[in-house]
Write a protein that binds this DNA or RNA. Sequence first.
DNA 1: TATGAATGAGATTTCATTCAT
DNA 2: CATGAATGAAATCTCATTCAT
Lengths: 205, 205, 205, 205
Amino acid sequence: MPRPSVPTRRADILLAARDVFNARGYAGTRMDDIARAAGISKAALYLQFDGKEALFQALVNELIETMLPQAAPAEFGDLPAEAILRQFILFMASRLTQPEMAFVPRVIIGEGANFPDLARFYHEEVISRGMGIVERIVRHGIARGEFACDDPVQACRTIIGGVLIAAIWKTTFEPVGAEPIEPAAMAQSHADTILNGLLTRTTTL
Amino acid sequence: MPRPSVPTRRADILLAARDVFNARGYAGTRMDDIARAAGISKAALYLQFDGKEALFQALVNELIETMLPQAAPAEFGDLPAEAILRQFILFMASRLTQPEMAFVPRVIIGEGANFPDLARFYHEEVISRGMGIVERIVRHGIARGEFACDDPVQACRTIIGGVLIAAIWKTTFEPVGAEPIEPAAMAQSHADTILNGLLTRTTTL
Amino acid sequence: MPRPSVPTRRADILLAARDVFNARGYAGTRMDDIARAAGISKAALYLQFDGKEALFQALVNELIETMLPQAAPAEFGDLPAEAILRQFILFMASRLTQPEMAFVPRVIIGEGANFPDLARFYHEEVISRGMGIVERIVRHGIARGEFACDDPVQACRTIIGGVLIAAIWKTTFEPVGAEPIEPAAMAQSHADTILNGLLTRTTTL
Amino acid sequence: MPRPSVPTRRADILLAARDVFNARGYAGTRMDDIARAAGISKAALYLQFDGKEALFQALVNELIETMLPQAAPAEFGDLPAEAILRQFILFMASRLTQPEMAFVPRVIIGEGANFPDLARFYHEEVISRGMGIVERIVRHGIARGEFACDDPVQACRTIIGGVLIAAIWKTTFEPVGAEPIEPAAMAQSHADTILNGLLTRTTTL
DNA sequence: TATGAATGAGATTTCATTCAT
DNA sequence: CATGAATGAAATCTCATTCAT
């Protein structure tokens, strides 16, 4: 039986933690649960992480570092903004509704007030960067003459809000009887609304 | 000095509870805190409510019953859908970002997984009814030829998502350093995006 | 069965705590032990005291407040300093060797480094005041022409040192085989040495 | 680079242990700390010592074996007892207030009740032998007609008490705000008091 | 011999809930 | 009806000690 290397051990714990946080939220997760899920003793957790909060942060960090770079191309070049935006929405919706990641916004939103360090960390590492990506896309569209928008920053919130609500819907309300949604279809509809708006075009002619 | 009637006593508790849940979230709120805020003993809480969860449900119930009927006119008549929708968004954004109510979505999202009864109750009493209102507005617009929309249900989620993110932003991220937002302005921008979309109109001419 | 008044409950706990601290020292004492000794639940301890350290401080405080005022008369008047000093030494030696109080210096000396708050509190409330009493006695003797002493402050330490060593001897070394000492006799001998010194009187004539 | 011999390894550990026990007391010292201070792994500690208690005993043993033989001349011959006693007090006070050794009495006193083996060992190896030395000095003075003393054994305790209190003062109370003392001066004052007593000589003429 | 990794057995503290008065 | 007091059941974190390599 080979001695597990430290990276493996850390990864095992993070994997186990992800499942438990998903199932129980932050406050509802006990270090004991994570340890049992990882098949190690509680004390061994503390060899790898300074405590519950540090473990949670490491986990979110890893998930985000893996996800964010894939959300949009590094350079937009001549790509049409519409395509980039549709792709971004689709990607985020599918990732955030996957059960493995859904707990992240849920925990931050729900328990951020009780754990300000968590909220601050998340705001800086995830929200700011995520908003930055969307903003770049919108400004790219404006620069190309493709988009028109008086308040690009708020448009970003509108974009992200639809994605977020998909994640919440799927993890919080579907289990208690809400009508199931299909993330890909939902993402397209969300993109359609954002891009075209609700007003009939002909009215403004 | 008249002995306080039971309804008053219950109302006092609910008021106190609202403040404490707001300040500390669900798990972070102790029955002790609520009792102290209400100026009564902890045991007296249990004379009025079966426990923490029941108290929370009663509170949400009351807030919702007060708020939802004001969100949109009962009958739309000939009113333009755009105006009704702007009014709805403005109303919801201002209500949900008021500190007195902001805790509600936060708690449901954050702790719904741990308290399925809560999530179910909220889905049925708030989400379904709220979505119903928005959907009626959108369909009203379509019927009037004002709106065009392939997926009205998803459009509702896009609309609500933007409002929700405002509430979350204000209560979760502003306290840890996020740039403050002004709910009324934000609501207008959100409505603009929803109504007009991002694409430049001229492209489709 | 009458409901115990709060003072009684606090006193019960302090009594129990005294016994356990005596038997096990500070770090060695578990809140569980105190609770069991007091016949109540661990949680009930926290209704009366903020925590282990606060409980210990309250206990020491009470013991000291009871003891110090009895150690010497408030006003010395024309009393001979020798009598006051002998009385002080006798009183302190008998009190500090009683098993009920012996733990106090032991704990402070042994664990003060790990609990600086404890050490500071003890220094201010006990050592400073105790030294003050002795110093008053010595200066009273000097003023009366009864005592001669180049360094009264150090003389106080010499006086207290002998008392302290009695307490330590009795509680730390007697249980492991040291020759037993009799506090009253010991106090008199200590006083003799302090008062007369070791040098033969005739040598200085 | 020669492989360190076992005695060197043990000595390194003891040196490191001394520093850590000094800084943190017995209960406050973690095997981890000692290992890190010694620059080896925790497990390696257990190759050299059976456990924490054994390590502590070995350490005290070594310190004592080094110190005691220097406390007084092996043979007193015609030396004046006063000089020998002053020298003894000075030596002990300076040694016990040096930070390297100060932890020893502190730990024995503080945790002797929890570790009877420690207390027994210390009583036999240190107290008894130390007291024996002082007693020899006092009896030497009596035999020479230099000293007069009804209870030489108690006089020894008075002598040692003053030294002990110096060590305690320096390590326990100075760090929390007590007025600093200078060991050499303190030792001389202590010796003065012990030798001359407080009573004015003329009263007995 | 040396060690990185693991753990069992606590320790303090918290809180929703109950109950005698 | 009201409450002060009590508690059982956790939850996080610690540390001396062991063991496979």
